[in-house]
C-alpha cells in the first residue's frame, strides 16, 4: 500500500472534523427558541402552503447528459495511463489515441446533429 494514501485519508478525516467541529460549535453557541412554532418547520414555498409533493419527474435529457459524462470519463480513464507513457512509446501511442478520440467524437457529432444535448 502506498503511504501517500494514508496521508490523503488523514486529510479527509481532518476535513470531516472541520465540518463536524463547526456543527459542534454551533450546537453550543446556538440560540434556542423558547417556543417552537409548527409553522417554523413548514417547507418554504414563498409563503404559501406547499402544494403536492416536492418530487417531480425530470426530463430524460438529464440522463443523457449524465451518461455522456460517464462515457467521456471512461475515455479519460484510458487516457490517463496513456498520457504517462506517451513520451516513451512515441508515434504508435499517439496514433492509437487519435483513433480512439476520433471514434468517440463520432458519437459526439451524432449527438450534436441529433440535438440530443440541447437543453430545451
Amino acid at each position: 500500500m502506498q503511504s501517500a494514501w494514508l496521508s490523503a485519508f488523514a486529510f479527509l478525516l481532518v476535513s470531516t472534523l472541520v465540518g463536524a467541529g463547526l456543527l459542534g460549535a454551533a450546537s453550543v453557541l446556538r440560540v434556542r427558541a423558547k417556543y417552537d412554532s409548527p409553522l417554523k418547520h413548514n417547507t418554504y414555498e414563498c409563503g404559501e402552503e406547499p402544494a403536492g409533493m416536492s418530487w417531480m419527474q425530470f426530463h430524460a435529457r438529464y440522463y443523457v447528459v449524465a451518461l455522456f459524462f460517464v462515457l467521456f470519463d471512461v475515455e479519460a480513464a484510458f487516457f490517463f495511463p496513456w498520457a504517462t507513457v506517451l513520451r516513451e512509446e512515441g508515434t504508435s501511442a499517439f496514433i492509437a489515441a487519435v483513433t480512439f478520440a476520433a471514434v468517440l467524437m463520432l458519437g459526439w457529432l451524432y449527438a450534436v446533429r441529433k440535438e440530443a444535448l440541447e437543453w430545451q
Partner: peptide
C-alpha cells in the same frame, strides 16, 4: 505499466473500447 500494456499488447482492446463507448453513446441518444 498499465499505460505500456494499453498501447502495447492490448492496443486492440484499447481501440475496441472506443467502439464500445461509441455504441453506448448512440444507444443513449
Amino acid at each position: 505499466d498499465i499505460g505500456h500494456a494499453l498501447v502495447g499488447t492490448h492496443v486492440l482492446a484499447f481501440e475496441v473500447v472506443s467502439m464500445l463507448l461509441l455504441a453506448a453513446m448512440l444507444g443513449a441518444i
